Amino acid sequence: MTVDGSDISGRALKFAAKLSKQFVKAGSVTVLHVDLPAFPGVQRKIGAEAIRAYHHDNHEHVLSIARKALARSRIEVEEVHEVGEVAETILAVARKRKIDLIVMGSHGRSAVKGVLLGSVSTKVIAQTEIPVTIIR
């Protein structure tokens, strides 16, 4: 389950929690937030500690929204936060953790309204053999 703080990722999060509860053996949900790396040269200008603090704040903000959405779900939740190119990082985490199903929103916070499927969703679908559920 990937989150970015958008309304669509919130709906996808609730869907993943509901789906997890429907299994005979309760499933778990891994909630992943991927933050884009800083532009080249930024770290040199503001320092490595400022970059770490920036990513920490972004992760905490987005994951706190996910925590609130899942507070009453009574499912096992693992939070993961990474910095990198979003689609590639989602795929790498899914492979490493042997994820059974990727649930994600059709487009995130940066998408143009009306776009049917965002570029991250398209890349994930095209590059994985893991089943993917897209929420609109």
Rank of each mutant, 00 (worst) to 15 (best):
V29Y: 04
E88C: 04
I135L: 10
I8N: 08
A111H: 00
I134E: 08
T122C: 07
A92L: 00
K123S: 13
L101M: 10
A16E: 03
I130F: 03
V120P: 04
V77D: 05
G41C: 04
D7N: 13
E49W: 09
V24L: 15
E79P: 01
F39C: 11
I46A: 03
D7E: 14
S119V: 10
R74P: 00
D7V: 14
Q43A: 15
H55F: 12
F23A: 13
S73Q: 12
F23V: 05
R74G: 13
V42H: 08
L32S: 01
I102E: 05
L36C: 02
G27Y: 08
I130Q: 09
S6W: 03
H61A: 13
G41P: 00
A17K: 01
M1Y: 06
Q22A: 11
V29H: 03
L101I: 11
V86P: 11
R44A: 14
E76A: 15
D100P: 02
A71K: 15
G41K: 02
K113P: 12
V42Q: 03
V115G: 06
L116P: 00
A126G: 12
I135N: 07
G27R: 12
A53L: 15
S64N: 10
H56G: 05
G10E: 15
S20G: 07
I99V: 12
H61K: 10
L116Q: 08
V62E: 01
I125L: 12
V42C: 09
A111N: 06
N58V: 15
T122E: 11
I51R: 07
I90A: 04
G10H: 12
D100R: 06
T2V: 15
D7K: 14
P37I: 07
T30A: 14
E88F: 05
P40R: 08
A71G: 02
K25P: 07
I135S: 07
R72S: 08
D4N: 05
G27A: 11
R52K: 12
R95Q: 14
A16W: 01
A71R: 13
V115N: 07
K14F: 03
H61Y: 11
V29K: 02
R67P: 00
K25D: 12
I134P: 04
V124K: 04
K21S: 15
H107R: 11
V77T: 15
R11Q: 14
V132H: 09
V24W: 10
G5R: 02
S6P: 00
I130K: 06
I46V: 12
A87V: 05
L70F: 02
A94R: 01
T89F: 07
G118P: 01
G118E: 04
G114E: 10
V42D: 06
L70K: 03
P40A: 09
E60K: 09
